[in-house]
Structure formats: structure tokens, C-alpha cells
Design a binder for these strands. Structure first.
Lengths: 207, 207, 207, 207
DNA sequence: GATGAATGAGTGTTCATTCAT
DNA sequence: AATGAATGAACACTCATTCAT
């Protein structure tokens, strides 16, 4: 794992915010330098180039999204409860890292930059495996239906959140959420519970 | 409704592809001009500016997404069948307009440009109303559960698709889809059926 | 003398105002076309080019500044009265044609354009000759001093006016002139009388 | 007072010449860069923009036109001699700064740019005060006539020079001045003495 | 190790003019 | 006779990056 010094981390944090708000191409290194209160040349000096800064940022953020889940599954709780827990955890994590998710969503969709997304793929694969093991467990217990397309569950969880987040102002209006705190609460409570209900309905009842 | 001539439409189509592939800021007017085989000055000449070209593009595409649904609901089919139909229709439409959805997803998420998204909001509101009326019908017939958060259904439908599309190369690999046709077929069959199953499970069984 | 049609004259008038206000290089043919409510192509069509429009404008305006003076000097009035009259006439004429003078002042000072200023030179030479004949008359009568540098009299008359006009806002403030009418009146009365007094003092008393 | 480095001064000098010769709008930053043998980007880099370069130039030049006069008036010479000195000084100064005067004359006459001309106004006001004090002194001594419109004296001095300078080629021809040195000498000797004679005639004899 | 100075390439836009009709 | 459509060239400016210090 690469170690970053204080100034590098400052740059990374500023860059993350700006890349999320303005897009990668919409952000200039001067913007970053100004907001991070460092010299323009520093970005190239520390990270090599603007593009490599993005790469460093992705690595930096995704290394955070490690395997903090595993311990949860030591607990002896029912598969249904595990599903509830994992969904709540996912949504919480995406919400905490929404800037990064926003950047990735955009970057992954363009053909412009060839960034090494291995780390991100690894995280996704890991998540998928956990989900698969829980569902297998539920199916073995006869609680979940067979023939569940597990690969299509993360899109429901992540996609729902991202879609709402991308259309935030529309949903703020639609759902009558007046403050940022209202929004946060809606994500944590209403959206989470909605997604849990949805996934569980699929797992338990659909045929 | 604004009419565009042949060359303007050519420019709009080229711009749509490039904006989707490279992002708005990642696309130069020279790129557009070169690909559309027109003079650089034509973009300003026809649309006023790069930004107004985007605006024209949004209007141009969204005006397509009219009310083609309504007639479906004249038919005397069950609410469940209507849900199936509307989901298939939505996914098909987003898939056909995926470039525009990709552009909008990005543009809506950045704070950079102030574009008039009224038309897009109107489409979303219209969709929501249709969905609400179907669900109301199902609830009145006792087929659907009460207390359905209708506002959160489009995020599941659209979000799932967009998420897969944004992470296309990851899912091509994961789902072992080798050709573009395979991908198209997966969207039309597997994803659609998965989302239909999911939504119906939620509507019918969840409590 | 070239004849201009109605639209051409409209263009010339608009161009004169704009060239005076914004400078030749600061005025675009589109500005002219818009203000004259004609097609952009018309400027090239009627005048050949933007530069030739300027040339046409100069000719058009200067042909106005003909020999309207001569008759004045038929009158049997004293040389001093003639000086008064000619100065008043000059200032009045420059004031009426101040847009053109402003344009010429600028154009003559730049090396950019090679315009045929023959007509303007002819007017200046003609003015000078009149002045010379009056002064000769006064000197012959012993009223004016000998050794008057006649060539340097027009600079005093024209230069004073132009300098004030160019620094209009400064002098409006300094001289406490509140309206456009105040300014006009100051030019016609105070400035004119001041210049008359100055020139006459030079002619009569200086040695 | 802002300090400029060597290259900035080089740019300022080149810009001054070009703005005077070709006008502000007639000069491109590329012209300036080429003549100053610097990169185009440097103009923006050093001055922010083309317009700010002009502003910097005005400030740079006008800060030169300080209060170098005052000491002259410590001397115990007659008001008439003071008038001679101040006129010679003014003409000399305008002549030295004729490029800047040319630029200002043009810029002040157009409505295009909003530049801070405070410094220039201050110089003019200062000049006017000096002139007023000398004339007051002469009037107190009974040497000068009362009722002198002091505000209209600078227009005679400056206007005469500027008018000749603007119509330089006409006057070169008229006054049979063959070389640049002839012109310089004519300004320093003949024009200066002519203006001195004129102003003094007005001050001493006019009523 | 860190940075101010500098730059070539590229940005979106406007320009005066041409040309087919 | 008159013009809408079109364009190559030029515009002022910003970009990410380099390099001497």
C-alpha cells in the first residue's frame, strides 16, 4: 500500500470533491491546486500527472472499502437478517463514498481514460461472493427461492442509490426533503428499508 | 417543436455519441466537427455555443420520449401484466436512449452547467403517474400490497440498467457475454425478466 | 460624385455612429448589419468590403464639407470679423461632423489602413487658403501682426475642440455641464468665444 | 506602485507601440507576443488579459507623469516666464509620451472599455491647479488679464500638439519637414514657441 | 524537496467574406 | 438585385506540464 503524506492527502480530498462536482475534464489542476492551497506544479510533482492523480485517488479510496464485512458473518443470525445487514451496510458505504462512486460511474462510462480498476473489480467480486454465500445458505435452509440471479442484485442496491443521488434535486423535490439532513435520513431509513424489502421479496417469494 | 435540418441532426447525433463516450467537457467542438464532417464554426453557427448544442440535444432526444405508453393501458389486462409491460417498455426505452441517459446522468450530477431539464422532469413525472395509477388499480383489486413507495420504483428499474451499463465491461466479463448482441439479448431478456420479477415480488408479497 | 441608395445611406449612417463609438476594428460588420437592419452580406455586396465601406463613408461625409465658406468673404466686413466668423463656422462644422472627425482622428493616427484621404486633404488645404487670404488682408491693413504661422492656426481651433470632445466626460465634470444641451451650448458659446479671443489676441498683439 | 520585471516591461513597450500604431482592437496578442519575442500565453500569464495589459500600461506610463513640475515654481521668475516654461514642459512631456496620449485619446473616445482613468484624471487636475496658481499670480501682479478661462488653456496646448501629431503626414508635407529630426525640432522650437506666443497673447492682451 | 516561471498545444468563439440561388 | 448558408482564418484565452533553481 502506497503511503501518502499530509499534503498529498489534502490534494486527494480536494480532487475527489472537485472531480465529483465538476467531472474530471471539468476540473483543472489549477482548481485543485487553488482549493488545496498548494502550488500547481505539485500535482505533477507528487502524482506524475492529472490522470495519475485520479488513479491514485481511486486506489486510495477503494483500499478503504476493504473486507470489513466478514466479521459480520461470523455471527449466528438468519440469512434474512444477514441480507438486511449487508444491504444496510452497502448503502451506508456507498453513501459515505458517494463522491468516489460518482467519479467512478462517470469514468467507467467513458472510453477516455484507461485506468487500472482492478482494485474496484476486486471489491465488487468480493461483495458478490459474500452475497452468494449468504444466499446459498438461505437456499440450503429452504428460506430463499432457488434460481436467484445473484449478479443482478448489486445493480438493484447500488443502482437505486446512485440513480437517486444523480437526480438528487428531482428527488428532493418529489420526496419533499427540505434539508441535507432530511436527505441523509431518507437514504438511511426509507431507501434502505425499501431496498431490503425489495430484495427479500425477490429472494423469498419470487419464482 | 424546433425543426432541425439534415446537417444539424448529423451534428446532434455525432455530439450525442461523443458526449456519451467522452463526456461533455472531454469532447471538443473540433472533435464533433471532425466526426460530423462539418466546419468547426458550424456548431456555433447552428447552435450558438457548445453548451446550447447540449441543450438542443437534450430537447431533441427527450421530445422523442413522449407518451407512447398511454395506449397500452387502454387494454383490459391485469395490473400484473401491465407492470410487466411497463417495465419491459422502460428498459427498452432507456436502452435505446442509453447515450442520452448516460449524458444526463453525468450532467445532472455535476453542478457545472445550468441546463433546462424541465422536459426531462416532465417525462419522469409522467412515468411516475402511470405507475401510480397501475399500482392503485392493483391495490384496489387486492392484488398488490398497500403502502408501496411508488417513487422508489423507477430508481430500481432505471438504476439497475444504468448501473450495469456504466459497468458494462465488468458485467460482460461476469456474465460471460461475448458479443454486443449477447449483451443486448441479456438486457432484453434476463435483466428485464429479473427486474419484472423483483418489482412484482415487492408489489405482491412484501409487507 | 457617387450616388448612394436609401439602404446604402442607412448603412453609412449606422457605420459612422458605430465606428465613432467603438472604433473601426471594434465594430463588426454584423453589428452594422444588425443596427441597419440589413443582411450581413449586404455590406460586402454594396461596398465591397468593410474597409471600402469606411472609405465610402469618408468620401460621403467630406463631400458635404465643401466650399460653403466662400460667399462669406464676399461681404465687406473687417478681417477681424471674418476671423470671428470663420472660427465660429469651423467649430460648428467640426461639431456637426464630430463622428467623422473622431473616426478620422483615429484612422489617421494608425498605420493600419491605407485610405485615400485626398478629399480630406483638399478640404484642409482649402480652409488654409481662406485663412491665409484673410490674414494677408488684415496684415495689409496693418491690423494683424506680420510673421503669423498660419499653418499652426487650424491646430489650435480644431485641436481644442477635439481634445475637449475626446475627454468629454472629464470636461463635463470640470465645467459642471449637466446635460447634452449644456455641452452643446458651451461649445457654441464659451469655447467658440474663447478660441476667437485667443486667435485674435495672437493675430493682433503678439510679436 | 507595481513593479514590473524586464520581460513585462518589454511587453508593455511593445504593446504601447502597437496600440498606438494599430489601435487596441487592431492589435492582437499574437502581434504583441511576436514583437516582444515572448510566448503568446505570457500576456495572459503576466497581465491576466489583453484588457488588463492596457490598464497596466496606462498605470505604468502615467505614474511617470508625476509632479516633476513643482520645483520649477520655487524659482523666483516672472509669471510670463513660468508660462513659457510650463508650456515647453507640457509639450515636451506629451511629445515624449505621444504613444500613450494617442492610445488614451482613442480609448477615451470609445465607449468600449471601462478602464480606470483615475490616475490620468489626477494628472490633469494637478496640471490645471499649477496653471491656475501661475495665472492667479500674474493677475495679482496686474500682468495678466482677469477673466481667463483656465480650463480651456490645456485644450489649446495639448490639442494643438495632438492634432498635428494625428495628422503628421499632412503637416510633414505642409511644413516641408523631411526627416524625423526635422519634425522633432519643429515641435520643440516652432510649435512650442507658437503656443507660448498664443497663450501669452491671450493672457496679456485679450479682454 | 519543492516551486515560480514559462510554454506549446488546444479551447470555444467570432470574424469578414464568399457563393449558390 | 439580394441573401441565407457556410467557412477558413484568426481571435483571446486556458490547459497540463516542464524545468531551472
Amino acid at each position: 500500500m502506497i503511503e501518502f503524506n499530509e499534503k498529498q492527502i489534502e490534494i486527494l480530498q480536494v480532487a475527489e470533491q472537485l472531480f465529483a462536482d465538476e467531472g474530471f475534464d471539468g476540473t483543472s489542476v489549477r482548481d485543485i491546486a487553488k482549493n488545496a492551497q498548494v502550488n500547481v506544479a505539485m500535482i505533477s510533482y507528487y502524482f506524475g500527472s492529472k490522470e495519475k492523480l485520479l488513479e491514485a485517488l481511486v486506489v486510495y479510496r477503494i483500499s478503504d472499502m476493504g473486507l470489513q464485512l466478514e466479521h459480520l458473518f461470523q455471527e449466528s443470525i438468519s440469512p434474512i437478517e444477514k441480507i438486511d445487514k449487508i444491504i444496510a451496510f452497502y448503502i451506508q458505504r456507498i453513501n459515505s463514498n458517494r463522491c468516489m462512486y460518482q467519479i467512478l460511474h462517470y469514468e467507467l462510462s467513458t472510453k477516455k481514460r484507461e485506468i487500472n480498476y482492478e482494485a474496484f473489480t476486486a471489491v465488487k467480486n468480493n461483495n458478490l461472493k459474500l452475497l452468494q454465500s449468504i444466499i446459498k445458505e438461505g437456499q440450503d435452509q429452504g428460506v430463499f427461492q432457488p434460481n436467484i440471479n445473484v449478479a443482478l442484485l448489486p445493480p438493484i442496491i447500488i443502482g437505486s442509490f446512485i440513480h437517486i443521488h444523480m437526480n438528487k434535486s428531482y428527488y428532493l423535490d418529489l420526496l419533499n426533503l427540505k434539508t441535507e439532513a432530511d436527505y441523509e435520513q431518507y437514504i438511511t431509513n426509507d431507501l434502505t428499508s425499501h431496498v431490503q424489502k425489495t430484495i427479500k421479496a425477490l429472494l423469498v417469494y419470487a419464482n
